[in-house]
Simulated assay, not measured.
Amino acid sequence: MALTIRERRVPRLHISLDLPSCAGAFRYPNPPVAAPAASTSSAAARVGDQQLRSSDLDRVAVLGRGNSATVYKVANRRTSAVYALKVLHGGGGGAAAAEADVLRRADSPHVVRCHSVLPAASGDAALLLELVDGGSLASVVARAGAFPEAALAEVAAQALSGLAYLHARRVVHRDVKPANLLVTTAGEVKIADFGIAKVLAHAGDHCTAYEGTAAYMSPERFDSERHTDPFAADVWSLGVTILELLMGRYPLLPAGQKPTWAALMCAICFGEMTSLPDDAASPELRAFLAACLHKDYTKRASVAHLLAHQFVAGRDVVASKLALRRLVTGA
């Protein structure tokens, strides 16, 4: 369950305690369920060479629900083209515009594409997004279990490529986790959900806003008054994500332990790195995880260093992509 937690010393606190199995995290995709009729708004946006209106879209299925948004699979009545429509609740026009602004800075195969911002029913705003047909890595691990190393290496390589692209443009994601990494049935990984992403005004700027999913936050982000390197925080979150896919469950708490604020803070800030059996991971994967999960962010590996790491750079690209594709498709 997503929680908003407030403390006196923190002026702005927007923290989710979601783990992959918790209600409130996007489940993308889900089996089709009944959905409300599409908005009849006459406002239009241009998608490619086509002038597209909200009324041109049929809602086919609900892909996911969260506290602040619902994601639908939609189809264009005129062309049958399919998209994901992320509807932000509560008249989230400002939030939609901010997220679209971040996404429009990106033209990478490893970042989900935003086609346009459209008004939706009841005054809500919506983002018309690329539909990623394999769902999220959270849904894949929930269905298929722990990932083999070959597939992990491919996930790491593509997610790092996406982060490298974003970081070069001073965009920090701040909520990297399995639910926010989407994958196609062809084995292409795409970073999604930029709801709390930030564009830094200048190189070397820091983030002090205290937002994100607590289970994937880096140790330094638990101190809201500390100026830290936001790019290093994205690296930590990716490290936790890779470790989770390796183990088949959230890795920083014992299996079955309730993810309370105190439990997560203690585990992340003061706990030892999860011990893996000798046969559970290669030396290269262990070294990669250690480089991502250094508690001192000044000593944590950068995205550039991780892209050159043997676990990523030394992988068999064809075999790794095939392993990931098989997991996604169940082949």
Score class of each variant (00 low, 15 high):
Gly256Tyr: 06
Ala146Thr: 10
Asp205Thr: 09
Asp234Thr: 11
Gln257Gly: 08
Arg300Tyr: 06
Leu131Ile: 02
Pro109Gln: 12
Thr70Ile: 08
Gly66Tyr: 07
Leu163Gly: 02
Asp296Lys: 15
Ile196Gln: 11
Ala192Phe: 14
Leu182Arg: 00
Asp278Lys: 13
Arg53Trp: 05
Phe311Val: 01
Leu88Gln: 02
Leu63Glu: 09
Lys258Tyr: 09
His305Lys: 15
Val312Pro: 05
Leu181Cys: 12
Val10Gly: 05
Leu253Gly: 05
Tyr165Arg: 05
Arg326Asp: 10
Ala255Glu: 15
Asp49Ser: 14
Lys73Tyr: 11
Arg65Pro: 00
Asp133Trp: 09
Arg221Gly: 00
Val71Lys: 01
Ala280Trp: 02
Gly145Ser: 02
Leu13Arg: 15
Ala281Pro: 04
Glu188Ile: 01
Ile15Glu: 11
Ala164Tyr: 10
Arg12Phe: 12
Ser224Thr: 07
Ser80Gln: 13
Gly248Leu: 07
Ala61Ile: 06
Ala44Arg: 15
Gly195Asp: 04
Gly24Met: 04
Gly90His: 05
Pro20Ser: 05
His89Cys: 03
Gly92Met: 11
Gln310Ala: 06
Trp236Gly: 02
Glu99Gln: 12
Ala100Pro: 03
Asp56Phe: 02
Pro254Gly: 06
Ser16Pro: 12
Phe194Met: 11
Ile15Phe: 12
Leu245Arg: 11
Pro251Tyr: 03
Leu88Lys: 03
Phe222Lys: 06
Arg27Ile: 02
